[in-house]
Design a protein around this nucleic acid. Sequence first.
DNA 1: ATATTATTGCAACTGCGTCGCGATAATATT
DNA 2: AATATTATCGCGACGCAGTTGCAATAATAT
Lengths: 123, 123
Amino acid sequence: MKRRNTPSKRKILEILKEANSALSHDMIQARLDASIDRATIYRILNRFCEDGQAHKVIGGDGKQYFACGMERGGKHKHHHFHFKCLSCGKVECLENEIQIELPEGYVAEKYNALISGRCKSCT
Amino acid sequence: MKRRNTPSKRKILEILKEANSALSHDMIQARLDASIDRATIYRILNRFCEDGQAHKVIGGDGKQYFACGMERGGKHKHHHFHFKCLSCGKVECLENEIQIELPEGYVAEKYNALISGRCKSCT
DNA sequence: ATATTATTGCAACTGCGTCGCGATAATATT
DNA sequence: AATATTATCGCGACGCAGTTGCAATAATAT
């Protein structure tokens, strides 16, 4: 399964990189000039996640948000909290690494950590 | 809007209390002898959350899980992580309180923190 | 016993995400 | 440069989670 370099893929990756927040499918749709099919956007985003170019967060609303820039390869910021502003809707990655001690015998694999509230510009 | 005491409500609360894990709608449905309508179950659960008798977690699968026993009133365990076992599917509340320093000007309101992996009995 | 109204069940609806499939287009091959 | 291969795309349809409107039911108040 070799990946191919397509316009849609390039555009979406650029949008993710420019955004300083995690984006949901419809937010990406909105930032596209020419519209791309829903299914295609999801497929592209999921491929990004598989390839480690982006990561996925589940919002408090149950929706999927995608961001790039805090991946494992990057600066070893493996597990970080996300912050969703209830006022402006922005979803950001927080810098600090998550620190939690699991009970004995428990093994962590994936982290999904989201705090909602108000961001600086909405306080 | 005064609450009423109904059989369905009692049954569901009992199920939540007996379970040592957070339950999704269908898990509750499965533990009921007589089946209760989906909508009703959700309404009851949401009322529990409003009244502070239970709390809701969003799973890594985007689904809602409900648990009681770690509410604010209880032992002041305001914000805790949840753990979902990818093998047996159990969702538990972890004891430790979440500790995270937010950037300046940020105000937290709700926490949704879930770690997935393998629990003790599935390792 | 009767009135009030919270709660229920049913059906329909919304929205998110996925999948199958034929068409398109990016890469590999000659 | 032309052709073959196959990853990707767009469309439609689907499945699931959760919600809502409404008429019927039943828990509380009178």
